[in-house]
Design a protein around this nucleic acid. Structure first.
Lengths: 169, 169
DNA sequence: TTGACATGGTTAGTCAGCTAACTATAATGA
DNA sequence: TCATTATAGTTAGCTGACTAACCATGTCAA
């Protein structure tokens, strides 16, 4: 994630727009601001989690497991849901297993497959992390009213759809 | 950057909120959606740049150099402005120099320091990349009116300020 | 004026992602 | 039925971030 510390001024963007008439100054400014703010928030989230010896990837695996009634899933499903490769998930699970937060359970049913189970220690970890996270996030978002949040969601949805324009061809 | 492919439903969030009463459901939902959309956009931007053999880091260095009237800067200043460590900047500059997009110019004035200069090839690269980027970004953002963009900026500013809540203590 | 500290850049080593290739197992269709 | 193909998980090796440590040079104050 781009983590610009020196956004272009509108002046600079105007100068660029002279050389490159395709530029839509407010579009560029809004876009890079979104990336920058999201980067800040992501970094801040990491800082919050690291106080509990977690990073976003591992934390998210624990949450995905907790969502299941059986507190159980498989590496492929977890990889899919977390949006990482299966290879990356193997690494995340190695780390979590070492810390006893999840366990690998081998099964006869499909001997290629492994069940990943949230341990009691894993649940206990979440019971400490989540209240901290939720409390901080509440504070983080308190400046936005419900209408603000809905509006933001709507604007994000439009941009998400627009991202295809960067990919086409 | 968290790249969730399986956002919690509001139902799931409600279930979590029962266990963790600190949870503010719309805050959580808005927050993770912002991270997800920004991740999508960042990935899409990478895809756009990679068609020109660039990644965000290197591309941004070229832009920072072009902003300067002298088309020149130094590694520390570039690192500061790009928001990466000096060590990372050394690597970015190594790559750019290998492709002849920038050159290192040693000086007598302060023999610790190096000037980094955008080469003609570097400028030529930007003259290809930027029109492509600007055109695509215009399309990407066309769904948002000027008022939408201003509103989005405002909402982002509030969230950016709020990110401190994740860091405190 | 010179010893201590500060600054600029690089190097070495770590980390969490990735892809590609591999092993083992399961499913399928000629 | 058994050769082929698909699936599950892991391993190996690459990448671009990072920090810490290191030189060389510059600055400053006793």
């Amino acid at each position: 994630m781009l983590q610009l510390r020196d956004l272009p001024t509108l002046d600079t963007l105007q100068k660029f727009a002279t050389r490159y008439p395709e530029a839509d100054v407010s579009a560029v400014y809004t876009f890079i601001n979104l990336l920058r703010v999201a980067g800040d928030l992501s970094t801040a989230l990491d800082a919050c989690l690291s106080r509990h010896d977690l990073l976003q990837g591992r934390w998210w695996v624990l949450i995905l497991l907790m969502r299941e009634d059986s507190k159980t899933s498989t590496p492929s499903v977890l990889a899919e849901k977390a949006g990482v490769s299966r290879a990356t998930m193997t690494g995340l699970l190695d780390g979590l297993e070492q810390n006893d937060l999840v366990s690998r359970v081998y099964t006869q049913e499909d001997r290629r497959s492994v069940f990943i189970k949230l341990t009691d220690a894993g649940q206990a970890k979440l019971d400490v992390v989540m209240p901290d996270y939720y409390t901080r996030l509440r504070d983080c978002m308190q400046g936005l009213s419900e209408q603000d949040r809905e509006k933001l969601q709507q604007l994000l949805t439009v941009m998400d759809a627009g991202s295809a324009a960067l990919l086409n061809e």
